[in-house]
Design a protein around this nucleic acid. Structure first.
Lengths: 115, 115
DNA sequence: TTGACATATACCCATATGGGTATATGTTTG
DNA sequence: CAAACATATACCCATATGGGTATATGTCAA
């Protein structure tokens, strides 16, 4: 097997910085492909490809408006990421790291009187 | 260019379900490689490889204990993910989705009396 | 010291990525 | 209708992934 497809889930889709950037831009409101191309300073086909990935995992939705396609954000699929990461939130609090050190020290001095 | 390396950042490291699983296990406390192999039901070299990726992005730390290596979690690198995703938290609240629909409807009826 | 155990590394392989460039498809304008 | 515009798709390519299996490295026990 190779690496999981980028369209597998939000985790994979969002691992690519460009796609995060696109979502960040769309957070400010609907955008056409051309607008995104300019804002990202990226070749149009690449933008279209990134948008396709985002669309496949449900992170963006499209609306046709003449010859333009207006993309807009749908953050819902990010919830799974949020929920998963949230579990570890305590991990990086100063208080927790302190506790961590204490536990490590206890473990160190566990089976030895000297050393 | 190909896809960014898994060791590029926490986003990429954590896109792989096995590695999330490993972190979830380590959240319950230190584990040796063999313990992880059993819990994951995965070949030992694969577990070692996943651990290496996690180590390179700082998500786990090792401690040598005889012939065993005890791995433990360090969630700190997950903070960037948390911070990023948190921005979109409102996006999936029912209230926000309602507002979203209203805005979409307004946009629909914007520039046309007929059509 | 030799063998068993624990872990890491070196390979082989199929796969899909992300960038690039060219082109197809569809829409509007003149 | 043709030309211009907006977007998507079809390719080509280098790359590293994740699984697999074999083996190197290091540590403990007999």
């Amino acid at each position: 097997m190779a690496r999981a497809a980028t369209t597998t889930d939000a985790f994979n889709a969002v691992a690519e910085p460009r796609r995060r950037q696109i979502l960040d831009l769309l957070a400010g409101g609907e955008r056409s492909v051309t607008e995104l191309v300019e804002l990202l300073d990226l070749a149009q086909p690449l933008v279209s490809k990134h948008l396709r990935v985002l669309r496949e995992v449900g992170l963006v939705e499209v609306r046709e408006e003449g010859r333009q396609r207006m993309y807009r954000l749908n953050g819902t699929p990010l919830k799974v990421i949020h929920d998963w990461v949230k579990t570890y939130e305590q991990t990086w609090s100063a208080r927790f790291e302190l506790l961590d050190d204490v536990l490590a020290e206890l473990k160190e001095g566990e089976g030895d009187g000297d050393q």
